[in-house]
Design a protein around this nucleic acid. Structure first.
Lengths: 237, 237
DNA sequence: ACCTGAACACCGTTCAAGT
DNA sequence: ACCTGAACACCGTTCAAGT
């Protein structure tokens, strides 16, 4: 069944036009681009497939389902996280706070990752490395094993929820500082206008309740509370 | 243009069969039933409409959109929350912990509410009352105004994220204790099998990392850390 | 082995038309 | 004023058929 010998070599195949084969990596690349540029809701199997110039069904040869794709995206983002690998017992609290700030920074740089991370145990290699580093800091702080273990659950929970809230409020579009200020002013007015007999504290604290929305003060408050709370659990305290 | 007098009174109108008019309340009732029985993903405008024996478009006369319906659901759940209205300076920390336990209880009793609550400012009347009560406890603990205000942001963030994680892991179906134990055993084995040179702490703490999944120990840890952290910010501390 | 088209069973929202 | 059917522009996933 060999071909006839005078069959001409096919001339100048349009090599560049041949489709690169799909791979897990190309799929995650495309999904990540969508995630960063258009937010979590833009990452659908269909849109990812479209970016790769194919149909949604083709993705399922490389990725089990949407949830697995979400996990891959979270792990891809974890790659960018730069956590200290030399814990210092003398300044573990500052290191822990820096680690939380770094987590938030990465989640902000990749809007949508927070939503993808919510409610999944991060088992990717990069994510596990972050956990390992965090455990190092906590053990440097003399936390008991069990406290350190639960803390590496609590900390990402807090940071992820913070980042998720931010992106939900923004949606895909990004609010300008003026938009936020406008909303804050509205909210403050709303609190102040509540019946003072039933909501005395809400009315009195209207200013405080709406403060720090456009800065990191709220987040800083959170990491201060958590760090102080953890420190109170350290051995020999 | 009056009707002719001998027009007979329409005999025995099938009164019971006349459709009750749609109202906000009926819509929320139906949505709440779906939410509790089938989880957050079952609450679609279409399914709610179907339960009410109409089409999805009919709902939009009473509810602005899906997001507003979510807010209404959260407020309906807040109704069930029983928070102390007489703050006691001597045991404010215990009251605060009880309040968090109560919040989690209600969210567990209404699976899906946590997902609906994520990332929205709770502005319903019932939800605002919970905030007011929480502020009362925190002020009884001598927290500065700003700390109390940010704390009533941090606390629901933590409780909601905890409840959300639980329901995500379960999905609509509920895991049995055996299912959880099986998953925990798998996870523990996974951590123990990691390369000990790169993940020494993760391997060593595999047991601690997977402990307390089927009980409230993790949540109790979280409320202990947050309460202790807040206490450290109290005036005259 | 990998990829594809087409289908299945869904979404939220809008709008002209009816009562 | 309220409700409706039908449409628009989407989802995730499956599966038989192709290469």
């Amino acid at each position: 069944m060999s071909q006839s010998p005078w069959q001409p070599i096919s001339p100048e195949k349009p090599v560049r036009a041949i489709r690169e084969p799909l791979t897990r990596e190309r799929i995650v690349d495309a999904a990540m681009r969508l995630l960063v540029e258009q937010g979590y809701d833009a990452v659908s199997m269909r849109k990812v497939a479209q970016v790769l110039d194919t149909g949604p069904a083709s993705l399922y040869a490389h990725v089990a389902n949407k949830k697995e794709l979400d996990q891959l995206l979270v792990d891809r983002a974890a790659q960018d996280m730069n956590l200290p690998d030399t814990p210092d017992p003398d300044r573990w609290q500052e290191q822990l706070k820096d680690a939380m700030r770094e987590m938030l920074r990465v989640m902000r740089a990749n809007p949508g990752v927070a939503r993808a991370a919510m409610g999944q145990v991060p088992l990717g290699e990069r994510a596990l490395l972050s956990t390992e580093r965090m455990l190092g800091i906590l053990k440097a702080g003399n936390l008991p094993d069990q406290a350190a273990a639960w803390a590496v659950d609590l900390i990402p929970l807090f940071v992820t929820a913070t980042a998720f809230e931010e992106t939900v409020k923004g949606g895909a579009a990004t609010w300008t500082k003026d938009d936020i200020d406008g909303f804050v002013a509205y909210l403050r007015g709303f609190f102040e206008s509540l019946p003072a007999d039933r909501f005395p504290l809400t009315v009195a604290l209207a200013g405080a309740l709406t403060a720090g929305a456009s800065s990191d003060e709220r987040f800083e408050f959170g990491i201060t509370v958590i760090t102080a709370g953890l420190a109170s659990l350290a051995d020999g305290n």
